[in-house]
């Protein structure tokens, strides 16, 4: 592990009751990287994010974040340490306004000038949020809600931003927009761990990628190698590498 490693997961086992979801996952993320996790539904992609963020307690294994062992920590502690997870299905607070949603995202921050500056910065990324600032989150469209969820993750200036299926359920045009946004974030040197079903798109922008299948890492490496070596479609259609889907 070098100084540049921000997140290191080793030999992680997670189970839902008696159902084992992750079998000894090892992975790492370096500063400034965009790492993508791909795989079919039920491969364990979201599970690994939830375990890293502290929502799920790992059965065994280690998670080191910024050099500290954090496996089994509470989500709020991890957030304080600089992690932000944008959950699957967005999970914005529907009856709270955009402003209030962002304020919860900034929980623990003082609402001072630097907050206002960051807010302005976010508005330049998401102009629509400024327009909708005083509307209830539940009244936003799907795409707007996703933007709000990402903005809510960003407002705490995280060292590691984890995005869980940000393109889920969005129209193709909006998916384009979301991916452009992720590229923009990457250019701002934000470390991102991205879980995506849309493997082609995710691999297109990632520095490195992990391919999950049945709770294990099937393949890891540069996206290009991955695309060359693994027949992605076969994984997706349940071919030799894919296991049963």
């Amino acid at each position: 592990m070098n100084n540049n490693t921000i997140l290191q997961v080793s030999d992680l086992y997670v189970a839902y009751g008696s159902i084992q979801a992750l079998h000894g996952v090892c992975m790492e993320v370096h500063k400034g990287e965009l790492v993508s996790i791909c795989g079919v539904n039920g491969a364990g992609k979201s599970t690994v994010l939830k375990a890293i963020a502290g929502v799920l307690k790992p059965r065994s294994g280690s998670i080191r974040f910024k050099g500290k062992e954090v496996a089994g920590s509470k989500p709020e502690q991890l957030h304080k340490m600089g992690m932000a997870l944008v959950p699957e299905g967005r999970d914005i607070f529907p009856s709270l306004t955009v402003e209030e949603n962002l304020r919860i995202g900034a929980f623990g921050r003082r609402l001072d000038k630097s907050y206002a500056a960051d807010l302005e910065d976010l508005f330049s990324l998401f102009p629509i949020l400024k327009e909708r600032y005083h509307q209830a989150g539940g009244l936003l469209s799907g795409g707007e809600q996703q933007m709000l969820a990402i903005a809510r993750g960003l407002i705490s200036n995280p060292d590691l931003l984890m995005l869980d299926e940000p393109s889920l359920g969005l129209s193709p045009a909006l998916v384009d927009q979301i991916f452009e946004l992720i590229i923009e974030l990457k250019s701002r040197n934000i470390t991102i761990l991205l879980v995506e079903q849309n493997a082609q798109r995710a691999l297109g922008i990632a520095d490195r990628a992990y391919l999950f299948s049945n709770g294990r890492i099937e393949y890891s490496g540069r996206p290009q190698e991955l695309m060359d070596n693994v027949d992605i479609t076969s994984v997706y259609l349940g071919g030799q590498n894919g296991g049963d889907v």
Binding site: V55, A84, F107
Partner: peptide, 12 residues
Amino acid sequence: ENFVTARLMGVP
């Protein structure tokens, strides 16, 4: 409204 998500945002 959503306890888990609130915790993910750092709410203890």
